[in-house]
Simulated scan of single mutants.
Amino acid sequence: MPKAYWIARMDVRDPDEYAKYVAGTKAAFAKYKAHFLVRGGEFESLEGQERTRNVVIEFPDRETALACYNSPEYQAAKAFRAAASAGELLIVDGYDGPQPGE
């Protein structure tokens, strides 16, 4: 079963409120074995709509990624994110197939 990833692209309007979201997600992310691959950081926008904050979180599989999102712990924190930012969050399955050059 492939790993799954949350891909979030956000424009943060209220950093103080967003900080409450970040603090509130810790329990859910620990419980569901989240692993941050990208968490903010510098970026270059090459195509499409640019967002000010980009995050990629790895989970063991899609079931776990969905369980984290739907958990009471995450849903409580999500209210802070909704008030503080606008953007997109999606879950994508990882790829286990052949790579270029293989």
Results as ranks from 00 to 15, higher is better:
Ser71Gly: 04
Gln75Tyr: 03
Val56Thr: 04
Glu44Ala: 15
Phe29Asn: 11
Val38Trp: 01
Phe80Asn: 15
Ile7Leu: 14
Gly24Asn: 08
Val12Pro: 07
Met1Ser: 09
Lys26Met: 11
Asp16Ala: 00
Val55Ile: 15
Gly48Val: 03
Pro100Ile: 15
Pro60His: 01
Lys26Gln: 14
Gly87Tyr: 02
Pro60Trp: 00
Ala4Pro: 11
Ile7Ser: 09
Gly48Ser: 07
Phe80Tyr: 14
Arg51Phe: 06
Phe36Arg: 06
Tyr95Phe: 05
Gly94Val: 09
Gln75Asn: 03
Glu44Cys: 13
Arg62Met: 11
Gly94Lys: 05
Val12Ser: 02
Lys33Arg: 10
Lys33Phe: 13
Gly41Ile: 00
Tyr32Gly: 07
Pro2Phe: 03
Thr25Ala: 07
Gly40Asn: 07
Pro100Leu: 13
Gly24Phe: 03
Tyr21Gly: 07
Phe36Lys: 05
Tyr21Thr: 04
Glu58Val: 08
Ala34Thr: 05
Glu73Thr: 00
Gly101Leu: 06
Arg62Asp: 09
Ala34Phe: 10
Ala84Ile: 01
Leu90Phe: 14
Pro2Ser: 04
Tyr18Arg: 09
Glu44Val: 12
Glu88Lys: 00
Pro98Lys: 09
Ala79Trp: 05
Lys78Arg: 14
Leu37His: 09
Glu44Gln: 15
Pro100Thr: 12
Gly94Ser: 06
Ala23Pro: 05
Gly94His: 02
Cys68Leu: 04
Trp6Val: 13
Glu88Leu: 00
Tyr32Glu: 11
Phe29Trp: 14
Cys68Arg: 00
Ile57Asp: 08
Leu46Val: 15
Ala8Ser: 15
Ala30Asn: 15
Pro72Ala: 05
Asp16His: 00
Pro2Ala: 03
Ala23Ser: 10
Glu63His: 14
Pro60Asp: 10
Ala4Leu: 08
Asn54Ala: 11
Gln49Arg: 12
Asp96Asn: 04
Gln49His: 08
Val12Cys: 04
Ile57Ala: 10
Arg53Asn: 08
Ala77Glu: 12
Tyr32Gln: 08
Glu17Ala: 06
Val22Lys: 02
Arg13Leu: 07
Val38Glu: 00
Lys78Cys: 11
Thr25Trp: 11
Glu63Met: 12
Ser45Leu: 06
Thr25Leu: 09
Val38Tyr: 01
Gly24Tyr: 02
Asn70Leu: 08
Arg39Asp: 07
Pro100Ser: 12
Ile7Ala: 11
Glu44Phe: 02
Tyr21Val: 06
